[in-house]
């Protein structure tokens, strides 16, 4: 007698399409949507939280600047409103990716389900990967809401190069995944407080070209902004979403994001495994 006699496969842990889809469904719809929507007030307030800042920055922009073609945002042809609408829509991807994975780990610790997750034949890395899917889906909704408000109420016009946009967004997400995994590892280890998530949220807002172009930063700080993949991601998305640019103009941005992906994801996974090993040595896996 060995292994779990489930569906004839050893423990159902194999990488078959059926297994992957089943687990993606379990993590996304059961653990993700079913739980998220069971808190209707939270779901409603989250939606409000996505949309209200768009109006806030719109009013601020009107007060501080004139969004004329003479402004420094004319590169995209639509002034500051289009600039911050795209910045806001996609910066949320990054910051919530950092927060969401970490939050996921913490709530599993608090619910006592983490031990049972890790006891299953689904590997810890796969648990992380499946957990990310729900976060990404939620942020796609946020992105659609913010871009929709921009188009419907604030006059933002999109000239979309669809393939280039999709590639840019995918790379924007995966190039930030490694750091998100590191952030969640910190929660596993430190239980409370998430220095990586907090640091990156503030850091990306300040240096990532979300609310103002990187060129506004003093010379030395501009270099700092290129240490985060979001800067390149937003450049690429703005160009492809607002100006209809193809792959060629955004190639350097894409290559930088590939570079960050290749470097940070293995680093994140290594750090996660190291942390997991450490908490299993200390006996603090399920404590919070």
């Amino acid at each position: 007698m060995s292994g779990v006699p489930v569906n004839g496969s050893p423990a159902g842990a194999g990488l078959t399409v059926r297994n992957i889809l089943r687990k993606a469904y379990l993590f996304t719809f059961l653990r993700g949507w079913a739980v998220w929507l069971s808190y209707p007030a939270q779901a409603f307030l989250t939606l409000v939280g996505w949309v209200v800042p768009v109006f806030f920055y719109f009013l601020l922009a009107g007060f501080l600047t004139s969004s004329s073609s003479g402004s420094p945002f004319a590169g995209n042809g639509q002034g500051y409103v289009a600039f911050f609408v795209v910045g806001l829509a996609f910066q949320g991807f990054v910051t919530s990716l950092y927060g969401m994975l970490a939050q996921r780990i913490r709530s599993e610790q608090m619910m006592g389900t983490l031990e049972h997750l890790l006891l299953s034949p689904t590997s810890p890395s796969a648990v992380l990967a499946y957990s990310t899917v729900f976060g990404i889906m939620l942020n796609l909704l946020a992105m659609a809401a913010i871009l929709g408000v921009g188009a419907a109420f604030l006059g933002v016009v999109f000239h979309v190069a669809l393939t280039a946009v999709v590639v840019s967004v995918v790379l924007l997400i995966v190039s930030n995944l490694g750091m998100a995994i590191i952030a969640s590892s910190f929660i596993l280890w430190m239980k409370q407080g998430n220095p990586v998530a907090v640091f990156f949220t503030l850091y990306t807002q300040l240096f990532g070209g979300v609310f103002f172009p990187v060129s506004y930063l003093p010379g030395g700080l501009q270099v700092v902004s290129y240490l985060i993949p979001l800067t390149f991601g937003l450049d690429a998305v703005r160009a492809t979403l607002l100006s209809g640019a193809g792959f060629l103009p955004i190639l350097p941005d894409l290559l930088w994001m590939v570079f960050y992906t290749v470097v940070t994801i293995p680093l994140g996974l290594w750090f996660f495994r190291w942390t997991l090993r450490r908490v299993r040595e200390d006996g603090t896996l399920a404590t919070y």
């Binding site: 779990v4 423990a11 159902g12 842990a13 687990k23 379990l26 653990r31 079913a34 034949p121």
Partner: peptide, 12 residues
């Protein structure tokens, strides 16, 4: 739903 989730991790 809980049973479906946890046993699904084993491929059931």
């Amino acid at each position: 739903q809980n049973l479906r989730y946890f046993t699904g991790l084993y491929g059931m």
